[in-house]
Design a protein around this nucleic acid. Structure first.
Lengths: 87, 87
DNA sequence: TAGATATTTAGAATATCTTCTAAATATCTA
DNA sequence: TAGATATTTAGAAGATATTCTAAATATCTA
């Protein structure tokens, strides 16, 4: 969970996740949405992948990234526990 | 929301929130649970308060901290949107 | 009031994070 | 195969975060 919280603590990475809601996108396609070098984008994508929030799939010369929604379950439970205050 | 994500990206602060689930506690009571100076604890509590995740109330020489669960609603919605993938 | 206790603020040291450029690797196409 | 495109890796600069000690502020109690 530590890596998940870390990964989510960055506006660029959260925006990447939001973009991926509409389906898988390549590193280049994602990068086109940001004013940032491809290397920096790759770094962010690596952070998200490390945390398990996205999965990568190489297709020819492109690398596609896709949301992995299963990881959000733990987050959700933590937050629900906080909201519920033990209930 | 930026400050909220930032505040949650630290194990000490998340643990503080978990401790507060059982009710308000003073800075000193919270500090006793960690191997950390009172000054550092105060810093973390300030970060949580800035993000709106806790509220402070001074009572005599003590300062009590209490969970503010309303802030978790936005987080919850963001995560549910991610899990739902637009559905 | 003086001293003790609780907490915060100030300032500094160290570690971590974000971003960059340059270079490396992989794949595609003429 | 050579060159073009896509992506990642390496290494460094600058910004931000975490923690500490020392000192400041507020409140309590003898």
């Amino acid at each position: 969970m530590n890596k998940v919280w870390k990964a989510l603590d960055d506006p660029t990475r959260r925006r990447i996740l939001e973009l991926l809601r509409s389906g898988p996108r390549s590193a280049g396609e994602l990068g086109a949405e940001f004013d940032m070098s491809a290397a920096s984008m790759s770094h962010h994508l690596g952070t998200l992948a490390d945390a398990g929030l996205v999965e990568r799939e190489k297709k020819g010369q492109f690398v596609y990234y896709e949301l992995n929604t299963t990881v959000f379950q733990d987050l959700l439970e933590w937050i629900l526990a906080m909201k519920g205050q033990d209930r």
